[in-house]
């Protein structure tokens, strides 16, 4: 193998992941129309922030910043969980799974590439929540936090999208996908620590939360705003990365397993 062919193989792999991933986003995401995008991905989560801030103020549980940080990160679950599920489950709706599985190319690149646009979408949503939320609530974003903020957002978006992909893999077999996505969404609201201070959650809730995406990212973000060092922030982020890798492995394993089963058992609707 020459370096030239290594380089061209790498560029072809990147192209499949990014170019292919981008096309698949437009093909499979139900919420790319402006009303759906603005309503479901932006306005809905923004009101969620304001709702919890209001609850927090009335019950004196925690301050505005607590809810803004938690719910801004949680907002990434709308595009990432629902989107990544659609990225797999909608193949069933269009009857395209057979044509996709006939591809001789790497499953890791095909399915992994599908996650990227949702992660980017999640980043945009979190940024929007953070900016508009801070503006409305009159909170400041010190320049010293911006670099850390970007790191937390990238990790949170990837982690949540890979979690969605693992659920999407299940949706290949299970007909009622939205049961899964709604349940996942509820789990994240309850266990991520976005709306309940981890110190006031019982141990078992924290234990469940630590295996879900976003839990450690939210922890890292709060540490960042509390003035912790990069080292402390990253000790939480490393755990989030580990959770993300776990879901990536699970998603890959499930997708390969179902592909193999479909050949043996005609279990999938592959035309």
């Amino acid at each position: 193998m020459t370096t030239v062919s290594h380089a061209s193989r790498a560029s072809r792999a990147l192209r499949l992941a990014f170019h292919g991933g981008g096309l698949s986003y437009r093909a499979l995401f139900n919420w790319t129309t402006p009303p759906m995008f603005i309503g479901t991905l932006l306005v809905g989560p923004l009101f969620q922030i304001f709702f919890f801030v209001h609850v927090g103020r009335s019950l004196h549980v925690a301050d505005d910043r607590f809810y803004l940080l938690g719910n801004a990160v949680l907002a990434t679950s709308m595009p990432c969980v629902y989107g990544a599920i659609m990225a797999v489950a909608n193949e069933r709706r269009f009857g395209t799974l057979g044509a996709v599985l006939l591809s001789p190319r790497s499953r890791g690149l095909i399915w992994g590439g599908r996650v990227l646009p949702y992660a980017v979408n999640g980043l945009a949503v979190m940024t929007f929540m953070m900016l508009v939320g801070a503006l409305v609530l009159g909170l400041t974003l010190p320049p010293s936090t911006l670099l850390g903020l970007a790191q937390v957002f990238v990790v949170a978006a990837m982690s949540c999208a890979l979690f969605g992909l693992a659920l999407g893999a299940l949706a290949v077999r299970i007909r009622d996908v939205y049961v899964i996505s709604n349940a996942a969404f509820t789990l994240l609201i309850l266990f991520s620590g976005a709306n309940l201070p981890p110190e006031s959650m019982p141990g078992w809730m924290n234990a469940i939360g630590s295996f879900l995406p976003l839990h450690h990212a939210i922890e890292a973000l709060r540490a960042l705003f509390a003035g912790a060092s990069f080292g402390e922030v990253w000790s939480a982020l490393v755990l989030e990365v580990a959770v993300a890798l776990g879901y990536a492995a699970l998603a890959y394993g499930l997708l390969r397993f179902f592909e193999w089963r479909s050949r043996a058992n005609a279990a999938l609707d592959v035309m």
Partner: peptide, 18 residues
């Protein structure tokens, strides 16, 4: 068996990649 929301061109671009 086709991506309804994409144009024919984009359907073909995606499968050319695959």
């Amino acid at each position: 068996g086709l991506y309804e929301r994409l144009s024919a061109l984009d359907n073909l671009r995606y499968f050319a990649e695959l």
